[in-house]
């Protein structure tokens, strides 16, 4: 009952946001420049939320998220540009293959813990990138030229789907199992939870939506090149999740929105931007390791008096 209420509130809110923005676009107030920023915002939210399910919910530290984004970007582009399929089909294919890649990477690596897992995911992401670099079918280093097909509508619908699926996962039995792994893997193992299974599932879901974001990204920027998906991109995504709060979906989304705006205003000063990013990363970790929102959600802020959700 309570869950479905949150669902409806979110859906209505999404519709309202969509209607307002669409209205502004059709009146001509939001020109391509702002539409483009909005699409980027959507892409970043998807990336942040999809990494949030891996790091924030399941507690598995992955720093190779850009690899799955690359898989989604390339496979959706192959579907639309080489096979001539429509964009929605292409996005589905990209996301599907990314999920598959997530499974393939996840099954062997997720038995590792902590920093070993981190470095292994980074390694896999680099391997994925190097594979694309060496396949001439997708243009190798020159990259693939892509017709622009993404519209703000596609991006927004994808974000809504991403958030709905991941929020539902988190609130489900599976999600609670995943959270228990984050809190204490051995204890949850002892409670009879198949930890490997849930870790891999969460990883695959995260990869799926990273792939979807990659598909939107590919069809928004005319050309994709392997260099775009290096580990700096993975770190970018990591910053959203860390800043927003490890374990908070809305935190990750808000951080993604906020940093997209900041970075488009700081576009003229790229070095300053990176210095600020890294300082923020360090300072947040030193003084507020749980991120800005901790594990709290923005919805819980409006439920004063009810049981607060700050677990440590």
């Amino acid at each position: 009952m309570k869950k479905s209420k949150a669902f409806w509130v979110f859906s209505v809110l999404a519709l309202v946001i969509y209607a307002v923005v669409q209205g502004l676009i059709s009146v001509g107030i939001l020109d391509l420049y702002y539409q483009n920023i909005l699409v980027q915002m959507c892409i970043n939210i998807m990336l942040a939320v999809s990494l949030h399910i891996i790091i924030g919910i399941t507690g598995q530290f992955s720093i190779g998220h850009a690899g799955f984004m690359a898989v989604g970007a390339y496979f959706s582009a192959i579907a639309t540009m080489k096979l001539g399929l429509p964009l929605p089909v292409g996005l589905l294919i990209g996301a599907g293959v990314a999920a598959l890649a997530g499974l393939l990477v996840g099954i062997p690596t997720l038995r590792l813990k902590g920093d070993y897992l981190a470095i292994a995911t980074l390694g896999f992401a680099e391997i994925i990138r190097i594979i694309f670099l060496n396949v001439d079918y997708v243009g190798g280093a020159a990259g693939m030229v892509i017709t622009n097909m993404t519209t703000w509508t596609y991006a927004f619908v994808s974000v809504v789907i991403t958030i709905l699926v991941i929020a539902n996962f988190t609130n489900s039995r599976h999600g609670r199992a995943a959270i228990s792994i984050r809190e204490d893997e051995i204890a949850s193992d002892a409670m009879g939870i198949n930890t490997t299974y849930y870790k891999v599932v969460a990883f695959a879901i995260g990869s799926l939506f990273a792939g979807l974001a990659g598909g939107i990204f590919a069809h928004n920027f005319f050309i994709i090149q392997p260099t775009t998906f290096g580990f700096l991109k993975s770190f970018d995504i990591l910053i959203y999740v860390v800043l927003g709060g490890l374990g908070s979906l809305s935190g990750a989304a808000i951080a993604a929105i906020f940093l997209t705006i900041v970075s488009s205003y700081l576009a003229e000063y790229p070095e300053t931007r990176m210095i600020i990013y890294s300082l923020v990363l360090i300072i947040v970790m030193l003084y507020r390791p749980s991120g800005l929102m901790g594990t709290k959600e923005i919805t819980s802020l409006f439920k004063f008096g009810k049981k607060g959700g700050s677990q440590k």
């Binding site: 483009n36 920027f221 994709i224 090149q225 260099t227 576009a267």
Partner: peptide, 10 residues
């Protein structure tokens, strides 16, 4: 970066 080149052109 190519994506930034698009942004800059826009």
């Amino acid at each position: 970066e190519s994506a930034e080149a698009t942004n800059a052109a826009i």
